[in-house]
Amino acid sequence: MKDRQQSSNNSIELLTFQLGDQEYSLDIMSVREIRGWARTTPLPHAPNFMKGVINLRGTVLPVMDLSQRLGLEARAHTNRNVIIVVKYEDVMTGLLVDAVSDIIALSDDDLQPPPDLSGSPSPNVVRALTLVGDRMIRVLDLAAIVTPSQIIAA
């Protein structure tokens, strides 16, 4: 598998992380940094997945709970939770996840399109699926997560 990665021109690197017992990933190019859990300042009347804002070296960073954003069950937060700071179209957002696992490199060929979810009420935020060993990893579509137009669907 390693050989294939290097020979492929369209290889991408993914940051994988845990949400509950599921494994998700994001294109590492969109990840700015990973921070430990910090207490957020809640925003009034915010949607439930908006955890609030934190101080990221002098700028105000909105943080959303990725589990809740994806419609998974909310869990109590522990100190092991981390915030992945992502940047999409110049807007920085923090994504709260359970734990960061790994960085994997794949070629585009390894990605499979997700099954058609049009019947599902949840927003289609999974861009692709991939198998690493026997683990299935969901590749998230960052745009769908941090773009406001998707909130209404959420």
């Binding site: 009034p44 909105p62 959303m64 807007v91 941090v146 406001p148 909130i151």
Partner: peptide, 9 residues
């Protein structure tokens, strides 16, 4: 506040 996502009243 970056309120492109959510503007708190």
């Amino acid at each position: 506040l970056d309120d492109s996502f959510y503007r708190a009243p």
